[in-house]
Design a protein around this nucleic acid. Structure first.
Length: 277
DNA sequence: ATGCCGGTTTGAAACCGA
């Protein structure tokens, strides 16, 4: 394995989206997958089908809404955290963390926050504060970490087809964007934006108003890399073909590839080879 | 440009997402 492929996908219902999930896994074969919006209880997670596709999995389900999962190709992810710290009363399934293929992965589904203002927006900002606090610890740990998921934040006006009709939306509020920038200021690299600094990249297209055929999208699914991983970033993009399948999610998977960490013996061998020539 | 679509729920209308 020369590269490690990581992806995040808001599937909008894992049961009704199972055929699409399996097609995508078969064609793209990502090594690590973060899923959001399972919309299924723990006992309804299709673990048999996912195992049959060659993946181990961890999941945190919930009736009707939310729900996150981490999949690892050919291995079982090792759980390190279930739920964000900071609010024991918060029962929503929005954060799962695990180690797989030598990387620590935080899979998150940040609250949408609409309507705004209101209690839902307050919850979004409070959740974001908890994430910022926890992310700081992860970043400072020095481990190779990826924070991946549906952040429900359009970082800048370059990340939306046209901000005009979304100005009052929770995804574009200055408070939401400031939180995202504060997170990045810890040192994280926004992989898709880093790889494509001047391109319009979207990960979500509304089901109606012909948003997909018009490519009227939003970039709200992000993969953030720790200092250890950022130099290993090789490529990043969006699996737009998945949005074109019958009965798609309103999101498409966003993915990155990372160079495998070169081992010390190999490096020493190359040095020896250079010395001899 | 207002959930207009789509998923889910103790089984139809209502709530939710972005």
């Amino acid at each position: 394995m020369s590269t490690l492929k990581l992806a995040t996908f808001n599937i909008n219902g894992i049961r009704s989206r199972l055929p699409i999930l399996l097609s995508w896994l078969e064609r793209e074969a990502p090594d690590i997958v973060c899923l959001q919006e399972l919309k299924a209880r723990d006992d309804a997670f299709p673990i048999a089908e996912i195992r049959a596709a060659g993946y181990g999995a961890l999941w945190q389900g919930q009736t009707s809404w939310n729900g996150v999962a981490i999949l690892a190709r050919g291995s079982d992810p090792v759980e390190s955290r279930r739920g964000l710290p900071g609010d024991p009363a918060d029962k929503q399934s929005r954060y799962l963390e695990a180690a797989a293929h030598g990387v620590m992965v935080g899979c998150l589904y940040l609250p949408n926050g609409n309507p705004q203002p209101g209690p839902k927006f307050d919850y979004k900002l409070a959740w974001f504060e908890r994430l910022i606090k926890h992310a700081a610890k992860l970043y400072e740990s020095g481990h190779p970490v990826v924070l991946a998921g549906d952040f429900n934040v359009v970082p800048t006006d370059e990340d939306i087809y046209n901000p005009r009709s979304w100005r009052k939306d929770a995804l574009l509020q200055p408070e939401s964007r400031t939180c995202y920038q504060r997170l990045l200021a810890q040192g994280w690299t926004d992989a898709l934006r880093h790889r494509h600094p001047d391109e319009r990249i979207y990960t979500f297209w509304d089901y109606f108003r012909q948003h997909w055929p018009r490519n009227a999208g939003l970039r709200i699914d992000h993969l953030l890399l720790s200092a250890d991983l950022a130099p290993r970033l090789e490529d990043a993009n969006v699996g737009r073909w998945v949005r074109d399948l019958p009965h798609p999610s309103d999101h498409a998977p966003a993915w990155i590839t990372l160079a495998q960490k070169s081992s010390a013996p190999k490096k020493a061998a190359r040095k020896r080879a250079r010395g001899k020539s």
